[in-house]
């Protein structure tokens, strides 16, 4: 299976561990992800104002790149795989909204000028959807090191599940990350706050607000006895993981808990090497805990 893949800016910088583990885990499952040529930033948030046109250009250009890959015979299928939740949501929503509104599409085409016309046939997929399509038994079949005894709390955040029309799974009772974790042999810890906001971009100018929201989520994970939290979004990972020092400033009693990408646990369970799991890039470092659980070698 060979599919075009849109990494997004943050997977190329602060979330390289997300990209590395994704590509390696995909290889194990015989999925070849081919990076989209000339891709541009999606804009991270969908343009909600009904008369907006300019913010559609970024996502639509990326979809045109998929058309070009098909025209060049590089891929067969018009399915674009995304991993970052915000990229997925933005490109998927722009795709739907633009196609539903021919007048908007006409304006977009007018501004783009030299770009070829978008076919409207690209389907935007999240990597999790691809995994579900493959089947959980296939995932289990690839497991070499079951994550037995590892208690993992899935954290969905906002945009995987909302708005309802663009939800990856049931917004009220999601199962997709739980199913994946169980397929990997881990024990799922169910958080009531698993789809509460982490504070998202308030991290930029209202970091205490983000820290408070993230604190609620992580404290619950601690109380429920989770060993770690998994996420699919680099902004969630930043607020919940890298910004734990801000939580400690507000709540000195807070005990830190590792936050990893779900693909890192896939790479671990598939028995891939340290370069693929890339745990050294996570803050806090999950390796002492994984070593304690006997899932990685003691250093």
């Amino acid at each position: 299976m060979r599919l075009p893949y849109y990494p997004g800016c943050t997977l190329k910088t602060d979330a390289q561990n997300f990209e590395t583990s994704t590509l390696e885990a995909a290889k194990t499952l015989d999925i070849e992800l081919v990076e989209l040529p000339r891709w541009n930033c999606c804009g991270t948030v969908h343009a909600l104002a009904k008369d907006d046109v300019i913010h559609y250009l970024a996502p639509i250009r990326n979809l045109i790149r998929v058309d070009e890959m098909i025209a060049n015979g590089e891929i067969e299928d018009g399915k674009l795989v995304t991993q970052c939740v915000m990229c997925w949501n933005t490109i998927k929503r722009a795709n739907t909204a633009a196609l539903e509104d021919p007048d908007k599409m006409e304006k977009i085409r007018g501004i783009m000028e030299k770009e070829p016309e978008y076919s409207g046939k690209v389907e935007v997929l999240h990597f999790l959807e691809l995994l579900k399509e493959k089947g959980w038994e296939t995932i289990t079949g690839a497991v070499k090191l079951p994550l037995e005894g590892l208690k993992v709390a899935p954290y969905y955040g906002c945009l995987l599940l909302r708005p309802r029309e663009f939800a990856l799974d049931d917004p009220d009772n999601p199962r997709i990350i739980e199913d994946l974790l169980e397929a990997l042999g881990a024990e799922v810890v169910d958080l009531a706050y698993k789809s509460k906001c982490c504070g998202a971009y308030h991290a930029v100018h209202m970091k205490e607000v983000s820290a408070e929201l993230s604190h609620k989520i992580l404290s619950q994970a601690n109380e429920m006895g989770a060993d770690m939290v998994v996420t699919a979004c680099p902004l969630c990972e930043f607020n919940l993981g890298k910004r734990q020092h801000e939580i400690k400033k507000l709540h000195p009693e807070f005990s830190s808990i590792p936050v990893v990408y779900y693909t890192q646990l896939m790479a671990l369970a598939f028995g891939l090497n340290e370069e693929a799991t890339a745990f050294e890039e996570n803050t806090p470092d999950p390796r002492p805990l994984l070593a304690e659980k006997g899932l990685i070698m003691e250093r």
């Binding site: 997004g8 910088t13 602060d14 991270t44 948030v45 998202a200 991290a203 680099p234």
Partner: peptide
């Protein structure tokens, strides 16, 4: 410290 995803969304919204 801030990842692009945070700054870009901040700018788009504010």
């Amino acid at each position: 410290e801030l990842p692009q995803i945070a700054i870009i969304s901040n700018q788009r919204k504010l």
